[in-house]
Design a protein around this nucleic acid. Structure first.
Lengths: 200, 200
DNA sequence: TGGCGCTATTGAACAAACGTCAATAGAGTC
DNA sequence: GACTCTATTGACGTTTGTTCAATAGCGCCA
């Protein structure tokens, strides 16, 4: 498990070291734990001293935030933006990409959500921005705005729909209830126009 | 702040003491803090010794869980079930009661949500059950089931709608965006039939 | 090639907080 | 007023987050 079995210290460039430590953090994320793991253990797993983690991230909280930021960026990057003129197609494909990401990365995604929802202001903001990025890029090119008009009410609905999607997909992962991939994608994607129409 | 300014100890019945400590916990909940507060401080605020908290709740986690359970029960109790033959009326009134509870108890409710979402399995389960109680009592009496049929898909949708409602109301509390109480109640209540129809 | 300097890295030391347990002292009873 | 039962305490051991002066790897220059 340890990255440095030989007794001597290994000197890396700050960027390399930072990446390594962050990588370990994300890995632990997908193994479920991380917040209940002590700094000592983190250092042990990484094969470095406690002090080094503090040197790079300032505090345990700082390390945790950096890892969450990394995971959130990964989510946004992996669910690549689709480029289609039809808004509904973009919506459908984005939801499909999101579902696939969650399926392929369930543990890590659960950890991310938990960290964001239960953490401090900074952690929540990180996840909030990721969420906004995820939805915003679906509508950004919707010049017409006739299907999804840009009003305060729809902004609220879109935001709350994100929570709907998150809960629906995670719940489905845990207990598919006979619904297949296409089914959950359809439920989540179709929900948005329905919600906007109902709120209008 | 302290409940016991005189030096001597005060002996209460276990039930009284338990209630007092739980009451303090819920109070701290509505002040925002509690998880980042130490057991020493908790004991100081309550005017008792550290050991007493361990005697009653076993661990800090145990105390935290008891407080969350108390807050969740309060939520379910305060948003009293409405007794109306019309399902849609029950839905609307339930949502209204929920909105009013969140408004009147915003800090505490936010703490509850954060604790549940970010906490361990036990904490999540506590909140999960409360959520289920909140929605289940709206539909329990719906014998006909023609408006909201009882299928795996609708169960999933109802569950996810809870998240939608939570996010919508909390977001609205923070930033009303010109929407009034009736408006947010309508958006959240109307969302459910719309979602069920879209998923059907 | 060998010494030198910069800085990445370490580990001992400190403080704060969790959890345990044998001793203590209220409150009701006879 | 003594006695018993048990609610309550506070000192102690352990774990964990954090700091900082000392150490040593790696590139550079002679």
């Amino acid at each position: 498990m340890s990255a440095n079995t030989s007794g001597g210290r290994t000197r890396l460039s700050p960027e390399q070291r930072r990446d390594q430590l962050l990588g370990m953090g994300v890995e632990l994320f997908s193994n479920g734990s991380i917040e209940e793991i002590s700094i000592d253990r983190l250092a042990e797993v990484a094969g470095v001293s406690r002090g080094l983690l503090y040197h790079y991230f300032g505090s345990k909280q700082g390390f945790y935030e950096a890892v969450v930021r990394h995971a959130a960026d990964d989510l946004v990057a992996q669910t690549a933006p689709v480029d289609d003129p039809d808004l509904l197609v973009r919506l459908h494909r984005s939801v499909a990409a999101y579902v696939d990401y969650v399926v392929a990365n369930e543990q890590g995604y659960r950890s991310l959500v938990r960290a964001a929802a239960g953490g401090n202001e900074t952690l929540r903001q990180i996840y909030d921005e990721a969420r906004f990025a995820l939805t915003d890029r679906i509508f950004r090119e919707d010049a017409a705005g006739d299907l999804i008009p840009d009003t305060p009410a729809t902004r609220l609905v879109v935001r709350a729909w994100s929570s709907f999607a998150e809960e629906a997909v995670l719940s489905w992962c845990e207990q598919p209830r006979g619904i297949d991939r296409a089914g959950i994608v359809r439920i989540v994607a179709d929900a948005l126009p329905a919600l906007v129409a109902a709120a209008g």
